[in-house]
Nucleic acid binder design. Sequence first.
DNA 1: GGATTGAGTCT
DNA 2: GGAGACTCAATCC
Length: 471
Amino acid sequence: MDYLAESYLGYRPKPIESLIGKKGKDQKSMGDLEPSEVSDYASEDADITLQLHNQFKPALKERSVEELYKNVEAPLVAILTDMEYQGVGLDVPFLEEYSIELKSEAVQRRDSIYEQAGTEFNLNSPKQLGDILFNQMGIEYKGKKTKTGQFSTSEDVLSKIDHAIVKDILDYRELTKLQSTYVDALPRMVNPRTGRIHTSFRQAIVPTGRLSSDHPNLQNIPIRTERGRRIRKAFVPPSDEYVLLAADYSQVELRIIAALSGDEGMIQAFKDGLDIHRSTAAKVFGLEMDEVTSDLRRKAKAVNFGLAYGQGAFGLAQNLGISRKEAKEIIDNYFEKYPGIKTYMDQSIAQARENGYSETLLGRKRALPDINGRNNTVRAAAERNAINTPIQGSAADIIKVAMVDIHKEMGQRQLRSKMTLQVHDELVFDVHKDELEEVRALVTERMTGAADLAVPLVVESGVGSDWLEAH
DNA sequence: GGATTGAGTCT
DNA sequence: GGAGACTCAATCC
């Protein structure tokens, strides 16, 4: 190889260390190279590829992740490429109309704010806004300062203030966020050749194994508020011969917690197909299922949710606006009723401490060098990673397996339908109307069957002429 | 002009 | 003082 390259092409192979460095921050990826640093010669590329192979082959074996690589990550590369090429349809005229609507609303809010402040200023500057509200207008400030010593004007702080100007500010923020980040930005990203939006899915960014998406990020399209949701109406199929299919895993992270922990109570709740938050509330607050109020269900839901992140009493209290004492009681009660989960979380930390890493369902590993550190804050963060990584990462493993299965089967059956997006627990497809029932069944079956856990995996799907309808 | 900060969007 | 991302506008350097 070296001989051929050098003698026939006058090329001297570069040692691989010059490209990837030995370790840590010295590492350089192909993406970091200037165009002038990238070879014009296929032989040099091939040589570099071989050297990378020689580096990574033993490294994969060392970490026992050859199967994960061979069966999941490597096949996924071409699938993501297909999805990126396929792109998604965007209804540009719809967004152009919506932009005008948002703009006129925002202007009304802005003028109202200036009038109440008695002055005009840069409303988009948190620094100027904080000065106006808490110095000039004399509104009482109850939050904590930012790390640069400024007043925080975050939604968290503002929403606790009872003042008309604050409602206008929060409204203005929502309107301008939607407009600048989505409604105006997305049409500019339409590829002139395809007339569609082509995101980039990145496979090696997130330490837990999730994908990320950028240029544009299609994994954070709004859904929570009414104004935000409307943006999803702009995501459309390629023609009227197609519809959108959206399929998502129901409560996948909580199911993974149940399965990995082996907690009998939570496993049984999922086997029985119960409303898990209601079931949790009944257990924790000592009630029958039909005695659970919406407020108690909300609290149980917050605990279930915070669980996956290693959240403590402080965080739960903050989240629910209750006292630390009450939050602690709820959490203590929770672990008493779900003892398997408490044990599992302690074990997750203990195992990470012994190994120096956390591990997912398919053996993906995340190094946690700070897990034995002396700095309490840093160590606590590593302990939360030790809890969260197997949960978030196993969910990532599972949907990736489903994507590989579905893509393969769709290819073998020569279907015209295409997978277009992945949003962590959801897959989106352009589906030809003739194939709708076949694809819906295939997707549901493969997603459901992507892992064999102690609890069932449940998939919900919807169909529509836009992304909002498909949900 | 690039990097950082504060804010806000998603799972 | 809850996990993981990306983007925007203002501001800093």
